[in-house]
Design a protein around this nucleic acid. Sequence first.
DNA 1: CTAGGAACTAGAGTCGTCTCTAGGTCAAGA
DNA 2: TCTTGACCTAGAGACGACTCTAGTTCCTAG
Lengths: 133, 133
Amino acid sequence: MLGLMQLSIGQVAERTGLSVHALRFYEKEGILAHQVHRGPGGRRVYTQQDVDWLRMCIMLRMSGMPVPEIRRYTELVRQGDGNELQRLDILKEHQERVRQQMVQLQDCMDLITHKVGIYQDYVNSIAAKAIGQ
Amino acid sequence: MLGLMQLSIGQVAERTGLSVHALRFYEKEGILAHQVHRGPGGRRVYTQQDVDWLRMCIMLRMSGMPVPEIRRYTELVRQGDGNELQRLDILKEHQERVRQQMVQLQDCMDLITHKVGIYQDYVNSIAAKAIGQ
DNA sequence: CTAGGAACTAGAGTCGTCTCTAGGTCAAGA
DNA sequence: TCTTGACCTAGAGACGACTCTAGTTCCTAG
């Protein structure tokens, strides 16, 4: 059932949140797991699997994996069985980068929270004085 | 003592991790809390406070605050007392964005960890078979 | 006196990731 | 028939944040 669903580029844009432009761009960049089938008039026909794959790509992009590396990964998947170790390497490497990113972000968050606290206290004290008058 | 320390652009680059180019760029973009003093020959002379301020800017940038918004914040600080509420708004808004970013990143991390787990198991099972032979 | 190194300015170039434009096809509805 | 709307391609443009270049000044050491 699911496998038979046929989606236009517009529908895929809707359900992934990507723009139609971005979808064509991603295809040109070779980050679709397999060739998108074409319907009458040369129109792209996507399946649910394409959408699922795209959703994963979106996650990878969101977490900062560059397009060329997503392409490398995609190519491995396209090649089929036998290169799982290489895929695993890419994922592990990225995982480590994301981990570092999260640590960094937490540091930034700590600083910001600290500053917000200081300003909040100050602003509150000003407000209290104004009321007290 | 600290306040009297004089630093060249190169020294500041060293201790902030920014490039000399980036330092000049940041200055041109108006994200230094106060005018950088110039020494003989028109050379920039930085103080420890400048370095501290830059370090904060780096944190804000790292967490995704765009340069123009850092400039807005910087301008408020330059203006002096009386606009603390506006500064607080900027910081709170950014804090919220960072929070969302962290949630997103955690989602990505979960997915990646999930996939890494699957591939790891698979690779292990292949390795086990190879040894078993 | 010359060479090296660090600094200066203004402005051009780069990189990644889209985003948009121009010009066209095709099918369905008024 | 005419219009609308979704789609197509190839290629140009936008944007943010640097990064680099060219040409110069200045100081210090050999």
